[in-house]
């Protein structure tokens, strides 16, 4: 079995898992609670095992790719995006394991699916031949950033659910949907903790990257690196999350407006994969 087919299987598992977690919100709130709750229970009880199977399949898939190409996964766009998706899945699985928040998966796993799907499109792309990519410092740089992305995605999922819950609670006639979304305070707390772990990792990742640039181990000059859109968006992402964290810690701000910052942070994170770059391979 190839890495590509394993990734496809992992993608399917994540997709089914996301649908399963989504049914917890929607099916249990439908007009016929008895029948719908049985159905949603039936679907949702497979969501967690499917998630773990997906994580395992992706681990094997990334491993197979590394063995077959004799390269670090970060030597290709497929490998990097696949690892980013894997980190999101692991981050969510960890938080679900700790806090029992399956519904968060309904919003977090679609982000993983977008990254994994995009990665699969680039499966056949040529592998970057730069020797710098094989170094430990780049591995630390990319891994720290990707782990932080995974946690940011979970924070984003919590923020989306917060905004949805806030909207439902603001409606004149409250629908039963709200009962299956975690409390606002819990979502706010989980996203804050996720960012609290992710931000230092992102900071480490960016610092390691800068050290790598200033050490002269890269072909371009530091000026070229800092003028690059990719670097600019990375720093903008960092500023967004720093602003979020300072607002929470220093000003004690909470509430719905802060959740929009997390959504903006995720948008900036995803933009990193979309903007053209002269310094990074992808």
């Amino acid at each position: 079995m190839t890495s590509g087919s394993m990734t496809l299987l992992a993608f399917t598992c994540y997709l089914l898992s996301a649908v399963g977690f989504g049914t917890i919100i929607f099916l249990r709130s439908s007009a016929s609670p008895e029948s719908s709750s049985t159905l949603s229970f039936g679907i949702s009880k497979y969501a967690r095992p499917l998630l773990w199977i997906g994580i395992l399949l992706q681990f094997v898939s990334i491993g197979l790719w590394c063995v077959s190409t004799h390269n670090s996964p970060f030597a290709s766009e497929y490998g990097t995006l696949s690892t980013a998706a894997w980190m999101i899945a692991i981050s969510f699985a960890f938080i679900d394991f700790r806090s029992n928040l399956p519904v968060v998966g309904a919003a977090a796993l679609p982000v993983a699916l977008i990254l994994l799907g995009t990665g699969m499109i680039h499966l056949k792309d040529p592998i970057a031949k730069s020797t710098a990519l094989g170094g430990q410092i780049v591995t630390i740089h990319v891994m720290a950033i990707l782990i932080s992305f995974g946690l940011f995605a979970v924070a984003f999922a919590c923020a989306v659910l917060y905004i949805l819950q806030n909207k439902l609670l603001k409606e004149r006639h409250v629908r039963r949907l709200f009962r299956h979304i975690p409390p606002l305070e819990t979502l706010d707390s989980v996203s804050f903790h996720a960012v609290s772990f992710a931000l230092p990792l992102l900071t480490i990742g960016l610092i390691v990257g800068m050290v790598h640039v200033f050490a002269g181990d890269v072909p371009k000059t530091p000026r070229e690196w800092f003028m690059d859109q990719h670097t600019f968006i990375s720093l903008a992402t960092w500023v967004i999350y720093i602003f979020y964290q300072c607002s929470r810690l220093l000003n004690g701000w909470r509430g719905v407006r802060l959740q929009y910052i997390l959504v903006a942070g995720m948008a900036a994170t995803l933009a990193l994969f979309a903007v053209p770059t002269n310094t990074h391979h992808f």
Binding site: V174, R175, R176, V256
Partner: peptide, 25 residues
């Protein structure tokens, strides 16, 4: 007041849908 962020105002009518679901059960 309900238009303010982070304020959730519910009057006696708004609670109707919260309790209505239990009629079926």
């Amino acid at each position: 007041v309900d238009r303010l962020d982070n304020v959730y105002l519910k009057n006696i009518d708004d609670l109707q849908d919260v309790v209505a679901g239990d009629a079926n059960e």
